[in-house]
């Protein structure tokens, strides 16, 4: 996997049932979601989003991630080539497990959000012993 060349992927614009109330483009970040016995981890690519620009909302098993971006470049610049657009990021998921809301942690590094959602005690799998008779 490490020797593979990266391919260009067009940024996906968000398709929502709700209408946007603010102008500007909204994109869906690409994500990795994985879980271990203890927690669910979400990694989301949100280039241009600073750590204070991230909003995470978990309500009734509905997880919403949003990121605000600063404009790239200043007003005085003129575009010569434009291969990508910029805009906010938004994506939402349903989480089936019970999450311990008090221990959720999130960090941003190089434009990647790492969100750790620890499972509540109840949701952790219990190993059921099968007794031989």
């Amino acid at each position: 996997m490490a020797d593979k060349d990266l391919q260009v992927r067009e940024k996906q614009e968000l398709q929502t049932e709700a209408e946007h109330t603010r102008p500007g483009l909204v994109f869906t970040p690409t994500v990795d979601i994985f879980e271990s016995e203890q927690e669910i981890t979400v990694l989301a690519d949100m280039p241009g989003v600073a750590s204070d620009g991230v909003t995470i909302d978990l309500h009734n098993n509905e997880l919403k991630i949003s990121g605000e971006v600063e404009p790239q470049g200043s007003e005085t610049e003129r575009y010569l080539l434009r291969e990508y657009d910029t805009g906010r990021f938004h994506r939402h998921f349903t989480i089936s497990d019970r999450i311990d809301q008090s221990r959720i942690s999130a960090s941003m590094k190089d434009g990647v959000l790492r969100l750790v959602l620890p499972k509540a005690e109840k949701a952790k799998p219990r190993r059921i012993e099968v007794k031989a008779e």
Binding site: D5, L6, V31, D32, I33, F34, E35, S36, E37, I40
Partner: peptide, 15 residues
């Protein structure tokens, strides 16, 4: 020990 729900992010080289 982890299992993936989604795996959309790519790794690799670019030039």
């Amino acid at each position: 020990k982890v299992s993936y729900h989604r795996r959309e992010r790519d790794a690799g080289k670019f030039r």
